[in-house]
């Protein structure tokens, strides 16, 4: 089966520092793939390159066989990739449903129309997406007063508007209460399974990662050090070391403890 997304030798240097170094991986159809690693491992850099917000120093990103490198985020979106943000990005001055309608107006290429009333456009469609994420009863509320977990749901609804093939989710549960994390992640998993959407996500919460990822990629200092199933990653000594520190320097202490 052809991969949905294929990343080949992706690298990014800032000055002399190699933030991401020759990373290779594929995302298969319907797969939930987690990208993890300690702070500074290059997760965000890697993600920003996939989204088109950062230009890679070298390497390619193929989406359904087409190279995305050099394209703007908005063009990548049109190809069928949706995304959510680590720090939520929603339109604070609009109502919840208008946030979704905005994405639909963009999808239907109506953003330069000056004649119709925007709040009447694609309303029922937008409501369906809100229903999907459980926000239908809050549709008319002001987005700025939404609880954080609900903002994350709203972002998900926005990201689903153009029927994406692939979703990129940057820390989908960051900043949420622990109980909410599980429900939002379960919701995401259910929706993408139903719609057969592939997901690539970064995450800090290991419960979320182990609970939902089909496969895990581990980055450290810009390099991909592991790529495997949940059990493989759990039992990988190199990954343990990356997360707990260690290395030659502390061998003596390790032996002592």
């Amino acid at each position: 089966m052809n991969p949905i997304l294929e990343v080949r030798d992706l690298s990014k240097s800032f000055g002399g520092l190699k933030a991401v170094n020759a990373v290779n991986f594929k995302v298969a159809e319907g797969e939930l793939l987690a990208l993890i690693g300690p702070n500074g491992a290059g997760k965000s850099t890697c993600f920003n390159m996939l989204m088109g917000q950062l230009k890679p120093s070298s390497g390619e990103v193929y989406f359904l066989g087409e190279n995305l490198v050099g394209k703007f985020p908005r063009d990548i979106w049109r190809k069928g990739i949706g995304r959510t943000f680590q720090i939520t990005a929603t339109y604070a001055s609009m109502t919840v449903i208008e946030n979704v309608q905005m994405a639909l107006m963009s999808f239907h290429k109506r953003i330069y129309s000056m004649l119709p009333y925007a709040h009447k456009m694609y309303k029922s469609e937008a409501l369906e997406f809100l229903q999907m994420v459980g926000l239908a009863d809050q549709a008319e509320r002001h987005c700025a007063i939404l609880a954080y977990g609900d903002l994350k749901r709203l972002e998900l609804a926005i990201a689903l508007c153009h029927n994406p093939t692939l979703l990129l989710m940057d820390e989908p549960t960051a900043g949420m209460a622990p109980t909410e994390r599980e429900s939002v992640m379960q919701l995401t998993a259910d929706i993408v399974t139903e719609k057969n959407i592939s997901v690539l996500f970064t995450e800090h919460d290991m419960d979320v990662v182990f609970g939902h990822a089909h496969r895990i990629l581990v980055l450290n200092r810009g390099e991909l050090i592991a790529n495997g199933s949940v059990d493989e990653i759990r039992n990988n000594p190199m990954v343990q070391e990356v997360y707990l520190g260690g290395g030659n320097l502390f061998e003596s202490e390790e032996a002592a403890s």
């Binding site: 703007f72 908005r74 979106w77 604070a92 001055s93 905005m102 953003i111 972002e155 508007c161 153009h162």
Partner: peptide, 13 residues
Amino acid sequence: RDSARQAEATGIN
């Protein structure tokens, strides 16, 4: 104005 990030990420130039 509200969120250029989200707007650009949903196809708005």
